[in-house]
Design a protein around this nucleic acid. Structure first.
Lengths: 146, 146
DNA sequence: ATATTTGCAAAAGGTTTGCAAGACG
DNA sequence: CGTCTTGCAAACCTTTTGCAAATAT
């Protein structure tokens, strides 16, 4: 289940952050989109709600949300600049379409065995991982000639 | 088995690229290191062999190597700007130390089942994945007070 | 001989910082 | 009210581009 903008706003307040219209505009954009968005795109969309908002504020709000683990960065071969909302309860990963950029979440990465093996082999104290799949979504798979 | 600088040089030539001293200097740096290196660091090290080499040339050479799949980008929470040599034959991933930046390769990610499941669930035509583990290596795990 | 490659300088992004004015609580 | 937040401009850093000179083959 995805967080709503209002729920996130509450979390911000709980942490002592002020709830400004600019922050709310950013929250609404991120909560409404299921795709990964660059700071620039978030800025554009946020301006529909709050015409005066500055790109700088978007960066600062993203930093804030990232610190609170409410948002996560999406890595892709053409850049690692996008963010999307993180679902707080369950551990999940992304499957991204190389054609249109669509992102699908999935859970159940089943990497515990591998992690255990790496622990034994390397003695690293493993704290996390990054896993993303790339491919073409059904829409982008359709041959151009059809 | 890792590629040597000379082997890579041969591959470049096979593809019709000229083998300049600058390119060779970059190859030697990358082939000699098992860590991920930023363009800047590669430039610094390459200058030991070729004092006149420009940072621009390092960028261009990295682009070349990346296109030929001889080098791969390393993603980390603090940036995705580093590269390291790719082993051409076998599919592998990285385990990175958050303390010192050391990178350990590993193979056997065993994601085929997961990929199959995602294919069935999403109908994506999956072409690849990105997997990296983070943690502290044994050296960095030692408590500071000891 | 000739097309490629290099390096400089300058441009181009993208992101961060300093600081005065403004706004949340 | 006081402190946190905003926005502008300017700084910053990394990466790319234009072009003449140099060079690998």
């Amino acid at each position: 289940m995805r967080l709503t903008a209002n729920r996130i706003a509450g979390i911000l307040r709980e942490h002592g952050y002020k709830l400004t219209p600019q922050r709310h505009a950013v929250l609404k954009v991120i909560a409404a989109s299921h795709d990964h968005l660059t700071p620039e795109v978030i800025h554009e969309k946020a301006r529909l709600n709050n015409p005066g908002i500055g790109l700088i504020t978007v960066y600062r709000t993203l930093g804030l949300l990232n610190d609170l683990n409410l948002v996560c960065r999406v890595h892709s071969p053409d850049g690692c600049r996008s963010y999307m909302m993180r679902r707080p309860t369950d551990h999940h990963h992304h499957l991204m379409c190389s054609g249109c950029g669509k992102v699908v979440d999935f859970a159940g990465c089943a990497l515990a065995d591998l992690e255990q093996r790496l622990l034994e082999e390397t003695r690293f104290n493993i704290s996390g991982h990054l896993l993303e799949f790339y491919g073409l979504c059904p829409d982008c798979c359709i041959p151009a000639s059809v």
